[in-house]
Design a protein around this nucleic acid. Structure first.
Lengths: 246, 246
DNA sequence: CGGCCAATTGACGGGCCTCAATTCGGGTGG
DNA sequence: CCACCCGAATTGAGGCCCGTCAATTGGCCG
């Protein structure tokens, strides 16, 4: 809190802040907000911006990770696969989330760009060094881990106990609340995932997802343009379909 | 790592370590291992040991938490409930796990003793103060959060993509690997959960759980005495039934 | 031995999966 | 500008796994 305020002050005469970081949202909601201008400069020296196009795998399951990264734009899906090919998406990450597991160099998950994305990547070593220097950085990462844990547990309830209809409505509600980091829940948004991805996230098949979306349309809960753009006239109604109480 | 080694040395002439803590396992695998003898003394001043019997609710969903606690003995189940009564267990905690969410005073979960348990409870304030003093403490909590996140994600795969048979086998394997903190996977153990709890953990009904257990028995994968004690002749076979590769 | 709750077993129905055909949408080349 | 193509999405028919409801068995304690 105090650190954020300090950064805001510095913005007024921000000659100290690295150029690439000035307009970066990761400095506010993201982990970089825990760093002093000096540390930010140090980090930016080793950081590389990169664009990744939708569908390309960034890290494979069981593969050694090269670096950590901040998501600047877009959505990343984290998934696990069984040896026979069955797949489950176990997490979605939105800007400005931090990607990559602290203290571990091997990923138990695969990470794939769900949409076109921009990331800001940096080597493990620098992150770990900064973590030792700035306790606020570990705190920030700790908080993100707790947030992801909450989301994972919420999703356990969805996968374990909800019907297909409720699952799909829950998914739409989740996207509505996450696409725009500022707002509560957007009434209009683009789906960042294909039907196949949605199915993998919900533990359903493509066909079931499609049928339930059709039903939501026919019930007037949502409207859809071009298979991607979704309108939600009354958010409370979607929530009721999702099994979420007011 | 170094801290653990330091504590081990101190054990040789451990007059500084609080009496209640000397035999406590939380000092090794648990969070107390991150504290110096002095900090441990400080913590123990406010800590209270308590026994809780199986089935009693410790914290309700949406309720304000009074304190944090270490689990000394037994198993605690964390669950979420929907307004219509559907329930899902979203996590199990074994000794010497830390219970209670850092930085938040309100619980989004309910915690219930699955077995008779012993806990060592301490008020929020003291934990937060020690966290500010000892960065190692937050690091320890961070690591536990990451461990729980891994487990939650593993379980998402189980709930989303596995069959009832695989789910039950996965549950038995999970228990086998967690009851005894030291070993890899115990070949013989008591189930800490009732069939109803197992069903709530797996997103199934009691009847389906029962049928699948029966099938595992008939297939010779497990043997059961008194509905609670489980024997696993060949662990690899259980794993195969669980959809886990070698 | 008898009562009580937990667990098992059985019969049946429904929700979601499987397999297959059709439609839609977006991009390309004529 | 339209015809064509190809993958994505939708729609349909049928079957199976697991949920539901009900009856029975088993274990534990008085």
């Amino acid at each position: 809190m105090q650190i954020a305020a300090e950064n805001r002050r510095k913005d007024i005469h921000n000659s100290e802040i690295p150029v690439v970081c000035i307009a970066c949202e990761a400095r506010h909601g993201g982990v970089c907000g825990a760093l002093t201008p000096g540390q930010l400069t140090e980090l930016s020296r080793y950081a590389t911006r990169r664009a990744v196009e939708a569908g390309s795998e960034m890290i494979g399951q069981g593969q050694a990770t090269q670096n950590h990264a901040n998501i600047i734009r877009g959505v990343v899906k984290l998934s696990k696969m069984m040896s026979d090919g069955r797949q489950q998406i176990v997490g979605l990450q939105f800007a400005p989330d931090f990607m990559g597991r602290p203290f571990t160099r091997e990923s138990a998950l695969s990470a794939e760009a769900a949409t076109d994305i921009d990331i800001c990547a940096f080597p493990h070593a620098i992150v770990e060094r900064l973590m030792a220097e700035a306790p606020g950085l570990e705190h920030r990462l700790h908080e993100q881990a707790l947030k992801e844990l909450d989301e994972a547990r919420e999703w356990l309830l969805t996968l374990g106990r909800k019907t297909a209809q409720e699952k799909v409505a829950s998914f739409l509600y989740l996207i509505a609340t996450h696409v725009d980091p500022g707002e509560d829940a957007a009434n209009e948004f683009d789906l960042p995932l294909s039907r196949a991805d949605i199915a993998d996230y919900l533990g359903l098949t493509i066909e079931t997802v499609s049928r339930q979306i059709t039903k939501l349309r026919k019930d007037g809960v949502i409207r859809i343009d071009n298979n991607r753009r979704v309108f939600v006239p009354v958010m409370a109604r979607l929530m009721r379909y999702a099994g979420i109480d007011a």
